[in-house]
């Protein structure tokens, strides 16, 4: 019953996906919530992140596993971080 190996990735790819999902996912989640402080009251965003933040982070970790290539997902997450944080930064100044 163990999962069929042919659908799972090589160790190097897996390493890429775990780092992208765990580290990248964390910063995507964080920068998204930072950006949201421009839309909503910031203390409300912070307290909401207690729930949405962790769930989103776990989902992003899973999405990284579902992606075909570890490089691709690292790139996507990096782009999202740049967009979210960039927008947050620009709106701040």
């Amino acid at each position: 019953m163990p999962a069929n190996k042919k659908y799972l990735s090589s160790p190097w790819q897996r390493f890429l996906k775990i780092t992208a999902g765990f580290v990248g996912g964390y910063f995507v989640m964080l920068s998204l919530h930072l950006l949201l402080t421009h839309v909503f009251d910031q203390k409300k965003v912070v307290v909401t992140a207690f729930i949405t933040g962790y769930i989103l982070w776990a989902v992003l970790l899973l999405v990284a596993f579902l992606c075909k290539s570890g490089w691709k997902i690292s790139g996507i997450y990096l782009a999202l971080i740049v967009i979210f944080y960039g927008a947050y930064y620009l709106l701040n100044n």
Partner: peptide, 14 residues
């Protein structure tokens, strides 16, 4: 999707 199913399975198990 059989691929997704196997990935869920593997990540859940590990």
């Amino acid at each position: 999707n059989i691929r997704n199913y196997n990935i869920y399975f593997n990540t859940h198990t590990i």
